[in-house]
Design a protein around this nucleic acid. Structure first.
Lengths: 147, 147
DNA sequence: TCCTTATTGATAATAATTATCATTATCAGT
DNA sequence: ACTGATAATGATAATTATTATCAATAAGGA
């Protein structure tokens, strides 16, 4: 069986841990497994509660510690939503944005190929700010929830 | 002396409270004063701590209650940032975006006149989502911090 | 000014996150 | 495979943030 995209992320995360001298422990694997399996951005508490479904599960402190580590290594990012801040999602390479279903929370990462350089230049002129980054997020309804 | 933009917002907020049958109390006025005077988006705790500088100040519960009320009336919105979620900022009419200085936190609201309708249409085709809203935020350095 | 009652302040209760430390388990080096 | 040094864990205490409770207070119409 061909390795799935999820398996690929998981093994690359484990490589990153090893190459930085961190151990690949069972609690860390469980947290990483949950994050990479999810179709929605999860909060730390949600990740912890999902882990309870398993036979053995990490303590809540280890969940927080693992998230802190993954964040420090740049492997995850925090997703912000109007009604529920700071969901966790794997970091994706390159410039991209997220698309969130308001109904079921399902998230998709989309390639950021919009051209707003002209808009940014105008903002810089008007405000005197130097702009070095932006967030673009889309909200709507996914195809499953539209039916 | 000409009434400032802040005074204008403040009196319109008070009108909104009155017209919805809510009382304009001292604690509410203090919270509204702090929000409208700030150049950065503030968290509930930050608003409370600023209020302590005054001679009389609201209890922490009243700060939360006032924020809940202002939010329900649509007078404030929550601003999300990578390192400090849920700052409070007055709602601005129309379609607009915010520009935040990563250094000092100073915030500006900018008119949303970018055209990303083509981009949105492409996203809808690719993903099957129906997109009904978006967030666009810019991060950078303000003119004061550039010097 | 008085009266009704919405609102407050003080604080208890709940929830979320971080810190502490003895015990456990990873994994590099045999 | 086995062993040992120590990174990491689990359990829990401490801290912080938010929400709920209720008697006392004050806003604002009559």
């Amino acid at each position: 069986m061909e390795p799935s995209a999820k398996d690929h992320i998981l093994s690359s995360w484990q490589d990153t841990l090893h190459s930085h001298g961190f151990r690949v422990t069972r609690p860390r694997q469980q947290v990483m497994e949950i994050i990479t399996s999810s179709t929605t951005a999860l909060t730390p508490q949600e990740i912890y509660h999902k882990s309870l479904e398993g036979e053995r599960f990490p303590g809540i402190a280890s969940v927080y510690r693992t998230l802190e580590l993954l964040d420090k290594l740049g492997l995850i990012q925090q997703i912000h939503q109007p009604g529920g801040c700071h969901g966790i999602w794997p970091t994706v390479e390159g410039h991209n944005h997220c698309l969130i279903c308001r109904n079921c929370g399902q998230m998709k990462i989309i390639e950021g190929n919009e051209d707003i350089t002209g808009y940014i230049a105008r903002i810089e002129n008007q405000t005197g700010y130097r702009v070095d980054d932006h967030w673009l997020q889309f909200f709507g309804t996914c195809s499953g929830c539209l039916d």
